[in-house]
Design a protein around this nucleic acid. Structure first.
Ligand SMILES: [Mn+2]
Ligand SMILES: [Mn+2]
Ligand SMILES: [Mn+2]
Ligand SMILES: [Mn+2]
Lengths: 224, 224
DNA sequence: CCTGTAATTAAGGTATGCCTTAAAACTAGA
DNA sequence: TCTAGTTTTAAGGCATACCTTAATTACAGG
């Protein structure tokens, strides 16, 4: 597999996880990559020939077992490099992804395994995304969005979408992974969630609060 | 610069260092890369347009100041990754080069600088090749070949050619950088150099002893 | 069941970096 | 000085991964 193919199987895997649907639409892939639908179709044909994907016309593509294995290898490399870049080199949160996006294609199996041990076999990357082990086992990512909390909830951030503007937005406010937020108010109509963090209040728009995931630790609200 | 261009300027730099001649012949580049002369000519034309090289027909190519800077950046990345892979991940001597050959193209300026500090600003890679600093200053490599020693000399290995079969050959004999060899005998006609290392004797053919560089520590031989 | 929309396929194009074969230009040795 | 051999340039090709435009095919709602 070359860089292009690697990025395709990774993207297919990630979009399937995001939507919960194993089949990913050609048009959605094109949209995500910023490529034309025709280009995506051509690549799908090639991936199919290599038995990395199953293509059902008018339904989408789905990774084969081999494709899934390759996708997990790329995700593993990507996330391990993110840990390295953050923990060891001290790169900023929002810089990790694009560096890892290059390094992931330049990493042999041997380097990957040693890097994994060197970093202490981390379970998640710095955005809270789970890191597959060498056998391709991967934990479920934290899936409860901050937006689904209620006034009074205490919420620990366990995962954030690896989306640069979001990361810049959060780090500008000194909010990091594992931080705890107290939900003050949720304005359903306006879609604004007001939280407290280290004594400061922040108002998050719905689309922001939907990209932050974690767990509710405790709640002062009355259970219905 | 893309991967191909990066490998070209690096190669031009390295061949110029090796030969001592600033101008590198098209045919020699083709030979080293295993490409056709025509392909090399095409790339030279492009590098010239980008003002990375000066091309003198029938003489060869020479890096411009900009080309030299880019070459040193690649060499810096390559050798720093070799240090990382060796010192931190414990990769075998002979595996370093090909891994670094990929990683060097996936490394931003920011990562490079942090990696440099993280590794303690090393002066040389694991083959003894000097690592340029961020400003492009680079030390002269050790240049005295083991083959130019005489019976009785004590010789410390400071640099070896980054050539896989040589590295495998040496590490199989437990010979590493900074080890000291005692020259027992030099057979000029046969070209065999006999040395002692950790109590064991080794016979090195001329072409081997010419790829190992270092310093003579002391000598029992009579000065003429 | 039929038709509009969405998805797929077809056809032809671009840039990159490699290739081969062949002509032209130059250099250097005799 | 002339010519043989080296070097460069020209011409045309191939694979990859992207593109646009234009059929064609299939699904799904009315
Ligand atoms: Mn990422
Ligand atoms: Mn990538
Ligand atoms: Mn090397
Ligand atoms: Mn390289």
């Amino acid at each position: 597999m070359n860089k292009a193919e690697e990025d395709y199987v990774k993207m297919i895997y990630e979009m399937a996880v995001l939507t919960g649907e194993p089949y990913v639409k050609t048009a959605d892939l094109a949209e995500q990559f910023g490529y034309s639908v025709q280009s995506v179709n051509e690549m799908i044909k090639k991936l199919h020939q290599k038995e990395l994907v199953d293509f059902r016309p008018y339904k989408g593509v789905c990774l084969t077992e081999g494709g899934r294995r390759e996708a997990l290898r790329m995700i593993r490399a990507h996330r391990l490099w993110e840990v390295f870049l953050s923990e060891r080199l001290g790169l900023a949160w929002e810089a990790l992804h694009e560096e890892a996006e290059m390094l992931e294609h330049a990493t042999s199996e041997a380097v990957l395994e040693r890097l994994y041990d060197y970093l202490g076999r981390p379970a998640v990357c710095n955005h809270g995304n789970p890191i597959p082990d060498a056998e391709g086992n991967i934990a479920r990512p934290a899936s409860r969005p901050l937006y689904e909390t209620h006034a009074g909830d205490c919420f620990r951030i366990l995962r954030v979408q690896d989306y640069k503007p979001l990361l810049a937005y959060l780090s500008q406010r000194n909010i990091k992974l594992h931080d705890v937020l107290t939900v003050h108010d949720k304005d359903h109509f306006g879609g604004i969630l007001t939280v407290e963090h280290l004594g400061l209040k922040h108002a998050f728009a719905k689309h922001i609060a939907q990209m932050v995931y974690g767990e509710v630790l405790s709640s002062t609200r009355l259970k219905k």
